[in-house]
């Protein structure tokens, strides 16, 4: 699909509808690694938080059916190649949420010999959720901010590989 016709002109409402649909049907591939995975589980399965009401479905059978990958937990050097490989298997457009200090920058293991200091060294990250571990509310906030970004962005530019300013939960508005 060429983005030009959707961006302006008579087809613009169709593009808006497309983005609206995409935003509320995110298939999420969970990459639960450490403590954050339990908080992610609480956000998904816990009746108090219930992320599925936002249209996030955490049951794709493989990364090939997923729109969104959540890296939650400590990424080690042994794990990093597997993350890269499964990320490459996801179809475009794809989004990455890095949950927790370990996935963001190494966290409490900043000087460890076996921990990758930040998952952004191996895959591009769209949303950073700080915290050790972040509360489930922060995870919900990250999802909501990502949906705002999807509503606002131009899919054509995304597919052409435009660089977007990453979102930081708790760091103010969603950057344009």
């Amino acid at each position: 699909m060429s983005g030009g016709a959707l961006r302006s002109g008579p087809l613009k409402p169709v593009g808006e509808l497309l983005k609206y649909s995409r935003k509320y049907s995110l298939w999420m591939f969970q990459w639960g690694l450490a403590c954050c995975a339990i908080e992610m589980g609480a956000a998904l399965a816990g009746p108090r938080y219930d992320v599925m009401r936002l249209g996030v479905i955490p049951f794709p059978a493989s990364p090939r059916q997923a729109d969104l990958i959540v890296i939650s937990g400590t990424v080690t050097d042994k794990m990093a190649p597997a993350i890269r490989r499964l990320y490459e298997q996801m179809p475009d457009p794809k989004y990455v949420i890095s949950m927790g200090s370990c996935a963001n920058c190494g966290g409490p293991y900043w000087d460890s010999y076996s921990v990758t200091k930040g998952v952004d060294q191996i895959i591009p990250v769209d949303v950073y959720i700080p915290g050790c571990p972040p509360r489930p509310e922060a995870f919900v906030q990250g999802i909501v901010m990502l949906q705002e970004r999807i509503q606002r962005e131009d899919p054509a530019e995304r597919w052409q590989g435009k660089h977007w300013e990453p979102i930081v939960v708790g760091g103010g508005e969603v950057p344009a």
């Binding site: 400590t74 000087d111 460890s112 076996s114 921990v115």
Partner: peptide, 23 residues
């Protein structure tokens, strides 16, 4: 095993006692 190895026993050698409880 080893996909979650974070090197705890080595890290404790570089931390003070109050810092280790965090770890």
């Amino acid at each position: 095993i080893g996909y979650m190895h974070r090197g705890y026993e080595k890290l404790t050698e570089y931390r003070t006692y109050p810092q280790i409880t965090t770890l």
